[in-house]
C-alpha cells in the first residue's frame, strides 16, 4: 500500500486543478467498482453496488497550493495561496506546476520575520525575463508544494497526506470490501481546501442515506502543542466535532460499535479548528446523517505531513467494515 500512497501524494492536484490526480485515482479504482462518473465540479464518483441504502464516502483529492497572479519583467512570479497555506511554511520550499516547471519561494527584505505575508513573497523559476517566464507559466496557473514521499518505517511523511492518505484508504477499502452492505458512492471530492465545495454538490447529486468523510486530523502529541486527546499510532479517530460539523450522534455510535466489534483501535476526536466534507454533506437537502473517520496527522498544511502506518492500515480495516455493516439509524 505504500506504493499507492507514494503515487497519490506525489501527484499534482491543488484545489480546482484536480485533473491529474483524478486520472490516477480513476485508473486505480476502475477494476473494483461498477460505475465511474465525474460531475460538474470535477468530483470523481465511484459506485460499487451492494444494494440497499446509499452510503456516500468522501475523501478529498485536492491539496493546498499557490496561484500565480502576476509575472514581473525579470520573470519573478507573484502568487496567492489556494486553501489555508501559511507564508511561513513556504520559506525554503519549492513548488511545481502541472507542466513540471519547478520554482523556489523567495521573499522581499523584511525588517521583522513576523511581517511576512504572501504578497511579500515570490516564486523564482530560474528565468530572467517576463518573456522567458511566459514560456513556462501563465497568470492563473497553480502550483503544488514539491516534496517527495518519505518512508520512515513506522511513520510516513510527505506533502498532501491531507487528504491523499484518505484517498489511498478509500481505494484500498474498495479493493478489499467483500460484501458491501450498501450501494457505495465512494467520492473523491474536489475543492475541499477552499470550502468543502465538491462534497456539497456531490452530496446533493447523490442524496445518500448516510455520509462518512475520511480526512486527517491534528494531534496533541508533540512538544508544547495545543490540548488534544489524539495521538499518532493509537488508531483512526471517530470524530465528535470540528468547526464544520457536530457528527450525527447515531452515526458516531454506529462507527464506535463497528470498531469495537472488529477489534479496531480508535480514538475519539474533538478538533477545535478546521472542517471536513462531512460538514457539507450533513447539511444537504433536508439533512444527511454524517460522520468522519480521521487519520491522525502531524504538521498539517506543511510540506511534511506525518502519519502512522498502523493508523493507515487500521483505517483501511475500519472503512471496509463500515462498508460491510448496515447503519440502522
Amino acid at each position: 500500500m505504500k506504493e499507492l500512497i507514494k503515487r497519490l501524494v506525489e501527484t499534482y492536484g491543488p484545489a480546482g486543478s484536480e485533473e491529474s490526480i483524478r486520472e490516477v485515482i480513476m485508473e486505480e479504482v476502475r477494476p473494483y467498482v461498477d460505475e465511474l462518473h465525474v460531475d460538474a465540479l470535477g468530483n470523481l464518483i465511484a459506485l460499487k453496488r451492494g444494494g440497499g441504502k446509499k452510503l456516500m464516502l468522501a475523501s478529498h483529492m485536492d491539496e493546498i497550493g499557490v496561484m500565480v497572479t502576476s509575472i514581473d519583467e525579470n520573470g519573478f512570479l507573484r502568487f496567492y495561496g489556494v486553501g489555508g497555506i501559511s507564508p511561513f511554511s513556504l520559506i525554503g520550499n519549492r513548488c511545481y506546476f502541472a507542466n513540471g516547471t519547478v520554482g523556489v519561494f523567495g521573499m522581499e527584505r523584511l525588517d521583522a520575520m513576523k511581517d511576512l505575508t504572501m504578497n511579500k513573497m515570490f516564486i523564482d523559476i530560474g528565468v530572467d525575463s517576463r518573456e522567458a517566464a511566459l514560456e513556462k507559466v501563465k497568470v492563473g496557473d497553480v502550483a503544488a508544494i514539491k516534496r517527495e514521499f518519505c518512508d520512515l518505517g513506522k511513520r510516513l511523511v510527505s506533502k498532501a497526506m491531507d487528504d491523499r492518505i484518505a484517498c489511498a484508504i478509500q481505494i484500498e477499502a474498495l479493493k478489499q470490501v467483500q460484501n458491501p452492505a450498501y450501494d457505495i458512492y465512494a467520492v473523491f471530492t474536489t475543492q475541499e481546501e477552499v470550502g468543502l465545495r465538491g462534497a456539497r454538490v456531490a452530496a446533493y447529486g447523490i442524496t445518500p442515506d448516510i455520509g462518512i468523510a475520511v480526512d486527517v486530523t491534528r494531534t496533541g502529541d508533540t512538544p508544547k502543542c495545543a490540548t488534544m486527546a489524539v495521538c499518532l499510532g493509537k488508531g483512526p479517530t471517530v470524530k465528535v466535532r470540528d468547526s464544520s460539523v457536530l457528527c450525527t450522534p447515531a452515526v458516531r455510535r454506529h462507527m464506535e460499535e463497528v470498531a469495537k466489534a472488529n477489534d479496531i483501535p480508535y480514538q475519539l476526536e474533538v478538533l477545535e479548528a478546521g472542517g471536513t466534507d462531512a460538514g457539507a454533506i450533513q447539511l444537504t437537502k433536508s439533512g444527511i446523517p454524517a460522520g468522519v473517520m480521521s487519520i491522525p496527522c502531524r504538521y498539517i498544511h506543511t510540506a511534511s505531513e506525518m502519519v502512522d502506518y498502523d493508523d493507515v492500515l487500521n483505517g483501511v480495516r475500519f472503512l471496509v467494515k463500515l462498508m460491510e455493516t448496515e447503519y440502522q439509524g
Binding site: 457536530l246 447539511l283 444537504t284 433536508s286 439533512g287
Partner: peptide, 13 residues
C-alpha cells in the same frame, strides 16, 4: 449556535 444548521435542513424539508 454553531451555524444555523438545523434551520437550514428543516426549512429545506
Amino acid at each position: 449556535e454553531v451555524g444555523l444548521r438545523g434551520a437550514t435542513v428543516s426549512t429545506y424539508g
